[in-house]
């Protein structure tokens, strides 16, 4: 099967192959999108267990509905539309939005949020600094308003074009760009105190 695709096949081509019964084509799609999709869901719902559940649901829906995909849109747009809808459903199901208390233990961790986010002081341990920085960024992203966060994640984690994001979200491309700008401004403000440390750690390469 892998041999059948001499060059790097497009997502839509892989989905067509899967529609005709080639499971390995699906596997290739899964490999491509598993990480960004999972991180999109994880940062959207802010709970690892829930994110795993939604991640499974999204792929199950892709499996169940792959025959409905006619290639009018890009596969990535379709996938993220499903993922976003699942997130919206999830948010609706929640009676109220949880705001994690700094004193409350973080799910899956014995530490409270306050303990996990130390005030970043000067440190000689670069690795520890990087971890702190990453944690702060992740939390800052999770604190973004929902409409900005989803745009930011689709752009930054998956690398979708603004036009594609506009299709997924159902607004104009200019609105998407504005949301991205607001998100970055907010992040920049929130992470201002870390700015001096950003250059000290090596940037992480995103495998997309």
């Amino acid at each position: 099967m892998r041999g059948r695709f001499v060059s790097d096949p497009g997502d839509e081509e892989l989905l067509c192959a899967y529609q005709s019964g080639e499971t390995q084509a699906f596997e290739m799609l899964l490999v491509r999108y598993r990480r960004p999709l999972f991180n999109f869901l994880l940062r959207s719902v802010r709970d690892r267990g829930r994110a795993e559940e939604l991640y499974q649901d999204v792929w199950m829906r892709v499996i169940e509905r792959c025959d409905e995909f006619r290639g009018d849109a890009k596969f990535s747009t379709w996938l993220y539309t499903i993922a976003r809808n699942r997130c919206v459903d999830h948010q609706r199901k929640m009676v109220f939005r949880r705001h994690a208390s700094l004193d409350a233990p973080v799910p899956g961790s014995a530490q409270s949020l306050g303990e996990r986010v130390p005030n970043p002081g000067p440190s000689t341990d670069r690795l520890a600094m990087r971890r702190t920085l990453q944690t702060r960024i992740a939390e800052a992203v999770e604190e973004l308003p929902e409409d900005q966060r989803e745009v930011f994640l689709m752009r930054q984690v998956q690398g979708l074009a603004f036009k594609e994001i506009a299709e997924v979200v159902g607004v104009s491309a200019n609105t998407v760009k504005s949301r991205m700008r607001y998100a970055l401004e907010r992040l920049q403000n929130g992470l201002g105190d870390l700015e001096e440390h950003v250059g000290e750690t090596e940037p992480q390469k995103h495998e997309l």
Partner: peptide, 14 residues
């Protein structure tokens, strides 16, 4: 600057 800062957003594995 913001894009450089958020480039270190950690990506977790499913």
């Amino acid at each position: 600057a913001a894009l450089v800062a958020v480039d270190q957003l950690p990506l977790e594995e499913p």
